[in-house]
């Protein structure tokens, strides 16, 4: 429960979210979404939710990113917007 750390992490998550939806290259967007998940995981750990933090780290950031990369690999990498 450290307020400055909380504010810094939240600013990073918001920046990552905006970058993930604005970048036109889908592979980059997916990797940034993984970074977003890791920042979120740090945020949960900072709020004392360690179980949620490690579930998010291995399931949200790990497996989710792998699924997304596999799907982008099977389809197109360029997005129009």
């Amino acid at each position: 429960m450290i307020l400055p750390l909380d504010i810094i992490l939240i600013v990073f998550t918001v920046i990552c979210a905006i970058a993930a939806i604005q970048i036109k290259d889908l592979l980059s967007a997916v990797i940034i979404l993984g970074a977003f998940s890791f920042f979120m995981c740090l945020l949960y750990a900072q709020m004392g939710a360690v179980d949620v933090a490690f579930t998010e780290a291995c399931v949200g950031a790990g497996v989710g990113t792998v699924f997304f990369i596999a799907a982008v690999n099977k389809t197109k990498r360029r997005a129009k917007d």
Binding site: A20, I21, L26, A29, V30, L33, F68, A71, V72, T75, A79, K80, D81
Partner: peptide
């Protein structure tokens, strides 16, 4: 707003 389906999923 985004037209790409993967972007919608993100």
């Amino acid at each position: 707003v985004k037209g790409n389906l993967v972007k919608k999923l993100i």
